[in-house]
């Protein structure tokens, strides 16, 4: 059998290459696929702009709020110290300045998550998936290559946007006398973990695309999972009894949100626990998607 394969390969003309399938080749193939679509290039650029834009808006809102407070204090003949300003943001309220880099994260989740669904569901819709599976008949390498590519791109874009957002925020709040720079507690953590969360959402999106093989269905489930479910669960807190108050934090979006905050807060899971729960959700979608992709007829 081996000798047969060797003779077959040696008969191949050199112009077509003789290396065979390599993972690096599959990765490059997926890269070409992703960036050879005009829509992807435009979408990625707009996502970057949108995340920074929403971040800048968040900076503006907080600045106006503080500026107004300072003005009122001045009118009453007092001076508002930076310490007093800081205290207007109680810990865990979500108004901390350290997580400003991730202010536009929801846009990233929505767009990059949808892009991830489309990256594979559009192949099913157009029939491209059959060409893909012909070239990579073991299938799993193609899916893994897609996953790596999406995770890296999501991480890079989100992190660039986070740095840019913070570069906008820093001088604004320093101008108010607030202590905010790269060394502020939680800033670097926020800058480098926001992308992990978005990358995880992208992986869930890719998995949904592979499982449902349908663009609209995949995006709908993704939005349901990360936006609608969280809102719906917030109503649970109105149910009498303490138990229901602790349920929503285990949802993918809330666990991810906890992962992006710093420090221990009583009554909620710690960031590392949130991170682990979120990772669990990613695997919960990723593993079945890989199994189904390998087994199902295309």
């Amino acid at each position: 059998m081996t000798t047969m394969t060797e003779t077959q390969t040696s008969r191949v003309r050199s112009t077509a290459g003789t290396k065979g399938v390599t993972f690096a080749g599959v990765l490059r193939s997926e890269w070409i696929k992703l960036f050879s679509l005009m829509s992807t290039r435009i979408l990625l650029l707009l996502t970057l702009v949108a995340i920074i834009g929403v971040g800048a808006l968040a900076v503006l809102i907080r600045f106006s709020f503080l500026d107004e407070m300072a003005r009122q204090a001045r009118d009453q003949g007092q001076t508002l110290t930076p310490e007093m300003m800081s205290q207007t943001f109680p810990p865990g309220s979500g108004f901390d300045l350290y997580n400003l880099p991730n202010a536009g994260l929801q846009i990233g989740i929505l767009v990059l998550g949808s892009l991830a669904v489309l990256f594979i569901s559009s192949e099913y819709a157009t029939g491209m998936i059959r060409s893909t599976m012909n070239a990579v008949p073991r299938r799993t390498p193609a899916f893994v290559a897609k996953a790596i590519l999406l995770a890296v791109i999501s991480y890079v874009i989100t992190t660039i946007a986070a740095v840019a957002t913070f570069l906008i925020a820093m001088p604004v709040f320093q101008g108010l006398g607030l202590d905010l720079d790269w060394s502020t507690d939680g800033v670097l953590y926020s800058v480098f973990t926001g992308g992990l969360y978005v990358a995880g959402v992208a992986l869930i999106g890719l998995s949904l695309g592979a499982l449902l093989r349908n663009s609209a269905g995949g995006i709908t489930v993704l939005v349901g999972l990360f936006f609608v479910l969280s809102i719906a669960a917030s109503f649970m807190t109105f149910i009498p009894g303490d138990f229901w108050k602790y349920v929503p934090q285990y949802l993918p979006s809330d666990a991810g949100g906890r992962f992006l905050s710093i420090g221990h807060t009583d009554g909620v899971i710690d960031p590392w626990q949130g991170g682990l729960i979120f990772l669990g959700y990613v695997l919960l979608f990723l593993v079945p998607a890989m199994i189904v992709l390998k087994k199902r007829d295309v």
Binding site: G17, G25, V136
Partner: peptide, 13 residues
């Protein structure tokens, strides 16, 4: 680009 993506999997020039 379609052919280029297919070729890339096998390192076909």
């Amino acid at each position: 680009n379609h052919l280029r993506a297919m070729a890339a999997t096998h390192n076909i020039p």
